[in-house]
Every structure is written in structure tokens, then in C-alpha cells.
């Protein structure tokens, strides 16, 4: 839902970032207001996951230029855990398996960290069980997954559902979902999309990183961005995604060449 007067939650300006010696982001600009759903598309390797990890505060990435403002303050000043407590959520493209750490315990500690930040009381194990059982319904997940180690031995689709479960518990203000639709069967895709739609509201915003129109058939984006060579090359409405379905990404090379870069550099 686009409302020009809605408060800005996230503002990225001229963001450049590198990992080790490799420059990956080359000037990303993006404004996200509350109530909006943004889709970010683009070729493999164009920098989508890098952008999401920079937003979440992954220590391997160095910001070389630019700024990110979140809820009016400098996001880059905040540790990853503080970002999460303040409502920034990243659904990982590849959720990490953590043997020996109980999923239930992990979810509880995580939820309580966010609650404490919001001035809400901590949930004990019993109160949390009630909450988690209710939120499990959002992703139609079997409670048996709570008693396993975090993501350990979960199938690809189960890991993604576990990510959305975390999102349902943390009630983020800005949720970045990095290819949460990849690897899902048709039913699971619908369940995950329903979950995201249930959680999206006028006071929060969602950034969907995806390769596929089939997700955007289920979650209607207000904006579609195309990333290439570490920047947002084009922004449009939901029809841009449909156009990409027809044309593919070939025009990207031309456009980058117009910007004075060799296509070879892009790949």
C-alpha cells in the first residue's frame, strides 16, 4: 500500500560495500515507507543477498560509502542483535543449521530479546509455548519441529517455514525475505505467501527478494526493483516484474553500458 505521507522506515543512500577485496555494492538507493511491499529482482550475483546481509549487519561486509537510516537513526551504528530487537528482520536465503541448540529455546530467547526492547515482559517457557503454538498456524508447521535443533536436518522448505515462523514471532517493522520462495513446493509457497500477507500491515514493510513472478502473483508488490552490478538499475510497479518475465535481463547489459560500464565487468 503506497501512502506518500507514510513514515519512512528505511532509507538507503549511495550505499557501497565490499567483502574482502571484492567491491559488490556500487551505490544502492532505496526508500521504504511503512505499509509498502517492495520486490527486489535481478540476476544471480547482482548483489541482492549482499544488500540483505549488509542491512542485517553481517561482519564480513565493509561499507565503503553511503548511509542507511532506519527509524530515523544510523543503522550502521547498531550491532546485528540491536537491529533485530528494533524490528529489522532478515529471512535468510540459506538458513544456518545449529546442532545441539533447541529450536524452541532459540525462538524463545530471540522473541524475548525483541519483547524486552519493546518494553514487554519476558515470556516464561509456558507462556511462550502458547504463543509459539498460535504462530505455528501461520506457517502450518508441525510442533515437532520445535523440539529439534535449529534447522538441523530440516528440508529446504522446512527451513524457509522456520524463517517465517521467526518472522511471525518477532513481528518486525521491516522484513527482508531473501528468496524465501526458492525451493518451496506449490502448497508450501502458498502457505508462506499467506503468512507474509497476514503479517504485512500498514505499520510495517516487506522487502521480497525473489526470482519468480509466481511469488508476486500471491504477494502483490507496490514496487519492483531490478538490481544489477550492485545497484538498483530500474524501479517500477508490479507490471515491471511481468515485463521481466517476457524480456529477461538482456536489456540490463545495454543499460549498464549506457552508464559507462562494460558488460564484462558486470558479470
Amino acid at each position: 500500500m503506497i501512502r506518500p505521507d507514510a513514515p519512512v522506515l528505511l532509507e538507503i543512500t549511495g550505499l557501497h560495500a565490499r567483502v574482502e577485496e571484492q567491491q559488490i555494492l556500487n551505490g544502492v538507493n532505496l526508500i521504504v515507507r511503512s505499509g509498502e511491499i517492495h520486490a527486489v529482482m535481478g540476476r544471480n550475483g547482482s548483489g541482492k543477498s549482499t544488500l540483505s546481509k549488509v542491512l542485517a549487519g553481517h561482519p564480513a561486509y565493509t561499507i565503503t560509502e553511503g548511509s542507511i537510516t532506519y527509524l530515523g537513526s544510523d543503522l550502521l551504528e547498531l550491532a546485528p542483535e540491536q537491529r533485530s530487537r528494533l524490528g529489522l528482520f532478515l529471512g535468510f536465503q540459506y538458513p544456518v543449521e545449529i546442532p545441539g541448540v533447541s529450536n524452541l529455546e532459540f525462538l524463545r530467547v530471540s522473541t524475548n530479546a525483541r519483547r524486552a526492547q519493546r518494553g514487554e515482559e519476558e515470556l516464561d517457557t509456558f507462556a511462550f509455548e502458547d504463543l509459539v503454538r498460535e504462530r505455528l498456524k501461520v506457517v502450518q508447521m508441525d510442533p515437532a519441529f520445535l523440539n529439534r535443533s535449529v534447522n538441523e536436518g530440516f528440508s529446504g522448505g522446512e527451513k524457509k517455514r522456520n524463517e517465517i515462523l521467526q518472522m511471525a514471532l518477532l513481528e518486525p517493522l521491516v522484513a527482508i525475505l531473501d528468496e524465501t520462495d526458492s525451493g518451496l513446493d506449490i502448497d508450501a509457497l502458498r502457505i508462506v505467501a499467506d503468512g507474509v500477507n497476514q503479517l504485512a500491515g500498514p505499520d510495517n514493510a516487506t522487502l521480497l527478494i525473489t526470482h519468480y513472478q509466481r511469488l508476486l502473483d500471491l504477494i502483490t508488490p507496490d514496487y519492483v526493483h531490478v538490481m544489477a552490478a550492485g545497484r538498483i538499475l530500474r524501479t517500477g510497479g508490479k507490471e515491471l516484474a511481468l515485463e521481466l518475465e517476457r524480456t529477461g535481463y538482456e536489456w540490463v547489459d545495454q543499460e549498464l553500458a549506457n552508464l559507462g560500464r562494460e558488460p564484462a565487468e558486470v558479470l
Binding site: 546485528p80 542483535e81 533485530s84 544456518v96 545449529i98 526492547q117
Partner: peptide, 29 residues
């Protein structure tokens, strides 16, 4: 593991507590 630590931190769990959770998990096995 750095990626395990980061995953926990990205869920609001502070670095120290995250290390403790990972250590506990390691021993629990």
C-alpha cells in the same frame, strides 16, 4: 562458527549469549 553466531545475533541474541548457546549446544550432543 561465524555464520552460526551471526544467525543467532540476527535474531536479537547478543554476541555473548549467542556464544554461550553455541557452546551449550556443542556440549549437549
Amino acid at each position: 562458527q561465524q555464520n552460526e553466531l551471526f544467525y543467532l545475533q540476527s535474531r536479537g541474541i547478543g554476541a555473548e549469549q549467542a556464544s554461550r548457546l553455541l557452546l551449550r549446544g556443542y556440549c549437549e550432543e
